[in-house]
Write a protein that binds this DNA or RNA. Structure first.
Lengths: 198, 198
DNA sequence: GTCTATAGAGGGATAGAC
DNA sequence: GTCTATCCCTCTATAGAC
């Protein structure tokens, strides 16, 4: 089967496997089986697992930055940006996935240095963007930021990252509880508004 | 070498390896090498990796519950209990470890069901204890609890769990920032008191 | 681009000697 | 309780045919 998009499809499957099974938990065979090809064909596109991991993380970054750019062009207000971010994480939750940065943090000592370096860049992008959104929201008076925008951004990301992991052990409520709590702290919660109004 | 404590030493090494390399990232060989024995000897004590995992998680539980019992007997006030918990997590940080519940969350799909069940019990114990401490602290007016004690307990655990993971990617400051933020929210921060006083 | 075939390493697990 | 030896499997990676 000669397809020009195989490289992209490999990355799609690899992304899914990484967030379901972890770095050490997926192999070239797993990818090949899902695509109906042989593992040697995967090695043609990504000679080593390090190459695959680096490409995968660059793909996360470019996806995320493209998504941010879309919001920027639409001049989305800070609350909308945050709800968009929550929706991304919630989608991971619904698909049974965890955050890739959590995966690489947990398995860091078995992950090639080149892949860890890319993870650092991705974490930087996400935190920088979140920090700017919080800063804007605070300036506009539509969000309540605790501490500095940077430290609140870190708290936000941490809460959802661990929430996805704990949901696997304790059930989905763990994630939803944490998500709602983050909204409350930001002054975005419907429940809180209802409670204050009533 | 005939030692009666080999079983315990295996569990100590396994605990260290789990928190450094993850579930899939450590093997009977790794354990054997560190103890100067053969992997077959490890299989004598724990026939399968599932047995080892279950024993390991029960050990975490009994250690934690023993630690809680010590605090209870000393009638430690809620603030002291929390600082003790922070010290445990900070110790993981200093040793380059991540939280075992984070490891099992990330790698859940490759972890035997029996081991996951034990992880659920451990998470329950920790959250129940944290929730009670927060409840007491709130009743005594020495801690500020956001939302319910149970949801705040979840937030506390999440923040530190993800903090340990992110520290591996972003450096130790990530963890310390999150820890200090949790203290501030609880009204335990020295910095905050200084700021309010000055 | 994909295949078959295979090398070489490592992991989980067991049998049986000591 | 620990050893040697071994089995069988999976994994990463490569060579070379098609």
């Amino acid at each position: 089967m000669v397809r020009q998009g195989t490289r992209q499809r490999i990355l799609e499957v690899a992304e899914d496997l990484l967030q379901h099974r972890g770095w050490a938990g997926f192999s070239y065979q797993h990818i090949a089986e899902r695509l109906g090809i042989r593992s040697a064909a995967v090695h043609y596109h990504f000679p080593s697992k390090t190459d695959l991991g680096v490409a995968l993380l660059r793909r996360y970054r470019s996806s995320f930055n493209w998504w941010c750019e879309q919001l920027r062009q639409r001049q989305a207000p800070p609350e909308v940006c945050l709800e968009g971010f929550f929706a991304l994480e919630r989608r991971y939750m619904d698909e049974g996935k965890v955050c890739p940065l959590g995966v690489l943090g947990v398995e860091a000592e078995g992950v090639p240095a080149a892949v860890r370096d890319e993870a650092r860049l991705l974490a930087g992008d996400v935190l920088r963007w979140l920090g700017r959104v919080l800063e804007q929201g605070e300036a506009q008076g539509v969000l309540h930021v605790a501490g500095t925008p940077a430290s609140h951004a870190l708290a936000l990301m941490s809460s959802l990252q661990a929430g996805l992991q704990l949901a696997r052990t304790l059930g989905p409520e763990a994630f939803y509880t944490l998500l709602e709590q983050q909204r409350e702290q930001l002054g975005l919660s419907r429940r809180r508004r209802a409670a204050l109004g009533g």
